[in-house]
Design a protein around this nucleic acid. Structure first.
Lengths: 206, 206
DNA sequence: GCCAATTGCGCAATTC
DNA sequence: TGAATTGCGCAATTGG
């Protein structure tokens, strides 16, 4: 109805900012054992949070495998000893040079008796001009993406505030209308009573 | 206010999630969505940026110090040539673990007469157990913080949706009330007319 | 000054 | 193949 005119620009923008709701695929990750990390200390965080989380944000992917499991469990930021080892090379991610191998699947547990043997990796060598090129492009994409996300969040906040305002106004309006209605009803009721008593007609001017 | 009873749980949570609105301190950077970004040309950072870079603080990790300047200018994700050079190893940041060698101390300076010698850094040496300790603690804090942020965002989204729903209901309610009011008014008006015709006296109570 | 919390950044894995 | 996402760790800041 007339509501359209009430929606302000912020809302409009916001709407366009959510083309099609989060995917909610079936996430793929493997949540493999590695570093099961039972860490010990529990830590609160209702499981509920996780649910909605993974849903809206859509699949938690790749990144820190183990983390996934953790997060799924609602156990986030816990001590969490690094997957490979505590401090030495390429613990978590990082480890540039050697190669992209170890982080991900972390085959080491099985195939590498000693330490990782990054060797044998077809090195895209960080030196490679191409590598740098890719990295640079990705960095740009990342910045862009985050910028977008920030704006989206901002819009959502504004939208929420705006809706809240609107809501209050509507509530007020309802209050007015309700009161007015009560008044009229009361009047009618009296008239009716009068009419009944008098048997005649008593009307108001309103 | 009096609206409390009407606000649903999601809202409640959301509210508590924003203790005190975005700080808006003296602002450090970003702050606003702007991104006005005159885009035009420019991008490329001036060598000037380098200065702030090496200066900052302990262990510079080469990361995106320069970025700061850019962002201050509202110039986001632009090309932006890497600080040290475009492709060489460990150029930007990264370098984490592998060895504290290259990044930090970077002995190479000996070989590179022209570049600054970051030496003279207070060595918190990445080897230091303390360093690792700090890092680990910070990593945990970071995860925690991000988790929190995610939940906050989610709450905001839910809140917005909920408010929208509520809004629709309120609008509907207003529609009903309005109609009802019109009906009553119409009735009263008719009776009044009748009363007038009859020559009766119509007064309103109230 | 220390510490936790934030925040921007780049990396790498994954999705689209 | 390349852009977009996203978790992660690092480092600089900020607020206590």
């Amino acid at each position: 109805m007339m509501s359209d005119s009430r929606v302000s620009s912020v809302i409009q923008e916001w709407v366009s900012s959510y083309p099609g709701q989060p995917h909610t695929h079936s996430h793929t990750q493997t949540l493999n054992p590695t570093t099961s990390n039972m860490a010990g200390s529990t830590n609160q965080l209702t499981p509920m949070d996780m649910i909605s989380y993974s849903q809206s944000q859509g699949l938690v992917r790749g990144g820190g495998e183990d983390r996934v499991a953790e997060q799924m469990m609602g156990m986030s930021y816990l001590p969490y000893t690094s997957p490979c080892l505590s401090n030495n090379s390429s613990a978590g991610s990082t480890n540039h040079h050697q190669s992209h191998i170890n982080t991900q699947q972390d085959f080491s547990p099985f195939l590498l008796p000693t330490l990782r043997a990054p060797v044998t990796k077809r090195s895209i060598s960080k030196d490679s001009a191409e590598y740098r090129m890719r990295r640079e492009r990705n960095n740009i994409a990342v910045r862009k993406s985050r910028d977008k996300a920030r704006r989206r969040i901002l819009l959502t906040q504004q939208r929420a505030m705006q809706l809240q305002e609107e809501n209050q106004k509507l509530q007020m309006r309802i209050g007015q209308l309700t009161q007015e209605l009560d008044t009229l009803k009361h009047i009618l009721s009296q008239r009716h009573q009068q009419g009944t008593e008098d048997g005649g007609a008593g009307e108001s001017t309103l």
